[in-house]
């Protein structure tokens, strides 16, 4: 699951999948603006067939947080 998340982040943000770690955040990736964030959320929802409640959306700002939100939703 973590690899799928990284792949989607890489594709949407246009960065290298290997470069993604827990320090990859909107503060360190300049392409990661609010629009890209919405796109990322939509792409994750598409990939995992879930709907992410809006209270989590603003917290999904690095791969660990995204991963933990999705794991809770998928399970």
């Amino acid at each position: 699951m973590e690899e799928r998340v990284k792949r989607i982040m890489a594709e949407i943000l246009g960065i290298k999948q290997e470069s993604i770690n827990s320090k990859t955040t909107p503060d360190t990736v300049k392409e990661w603006d609010s629009l890209k964030h919405m796109q990322l959320i939509l792409a994750l929802e598409e990939e995992f067939s879930v709907e992410i409640p809006d209270e989590f959306i603003d917290k999904m700002l690095n791969v660990d947080m995204i991963f933990s939100v999705l794991r809770n939703l998928v399970e």
Binding site: I12, G14, L42, A43, E46, E47
Partner: peptide
Amino acid sequence: SNLTDIIPQVRE
């Protein structure tokens, strides 16, 4: 179309 499919294609 899936967003994750088309974004890389648009780059190409």
